[in-house]
Amino acid sequence: MTRIDATFAKLRAEGKKAFVSYIMAGDPDLDTSLAVMKGLPAAGVDIIELGVPFTDPMADGPTIQLAGQRALEAGMTLQKTLDMVRTFRKDDADTPIVLMGYYNPIYNRGVDRFLADAQEVGIDGLIVVDLPPEEDEELCIPAQAAGLNFIRLATPTTDDKRLPKVLTNTSGFVYYVSITGITGAAEAQAGDVGPEVARMKAQTDLPIIVGFGVKTPETARAIASVADGCVVGSAIVSQVAAGKPVDEILAFVKSLSDGAHAA
């Protein structure tokens, strides 16, 4: 059982929905992002998604693109992201960490070496946007063999025929992308999301977490109420981009997690 599985078991027992937050590692610099990360559990974050900066984030909107550029300009790398997790783990043994990014930095490092390092520093799961089920042999299968969760995105274009393919080899949870589009785009609509979550629930026992287009405490609550939880990314990253101090960023995160947990 990974930390992710344990977290969902605990939330289920408490009758609570999950709140997942995304931040970009190294944005705007390593120290600030580490300070934000360390404060996330106290701000009510159940699972941390840590973005790995990449020069060509094809599925991300301008907010995350710019966060990646800031991080890269400040010298962030995959190695430093792994080190950042290692530092975080010194004080927090329980909060699950999911690394989210694109395949090339991992491929470049070497899949075996990356998986060994990821395990060693205390990473629990991976979301790799540009690895669909058709490319499972690349990373998904080796990652699961190494004991990491491989969390897959399901989208409005994933029809019932394709859904089983997406759910096979998925573990931890299913990340449902609420819109056809990029991160930080249109507002997610609970009315659209609810039936989609039900559609997936018919085919899997895994928790369904909804992301893309969740920006406010109200949306967080509305979306979490029709799923097992929600993810907020761009809205938090925008606070970092605006140069807000760490405590203000965390206060904003708290308002979002309160929203999700009230669902």
């Binding site: 094809m58 599925a59 395949y103 946007v129 540009d130 690895l131 669909p132 089920p133 058709e134 490319e135 897959r152 995105l153 399901a154 989208t155 409005p156 274009t157 994933t158 029809d159 394709r162 997406v166 992308v177 056809t180 589009g181």
Partner: peptide, 9 residues
Amino acid sequence: RFVSETLMP
């Protein structure tokens, strides 16, 4: 075929 799930179908 290294693309996001939205494009895969």
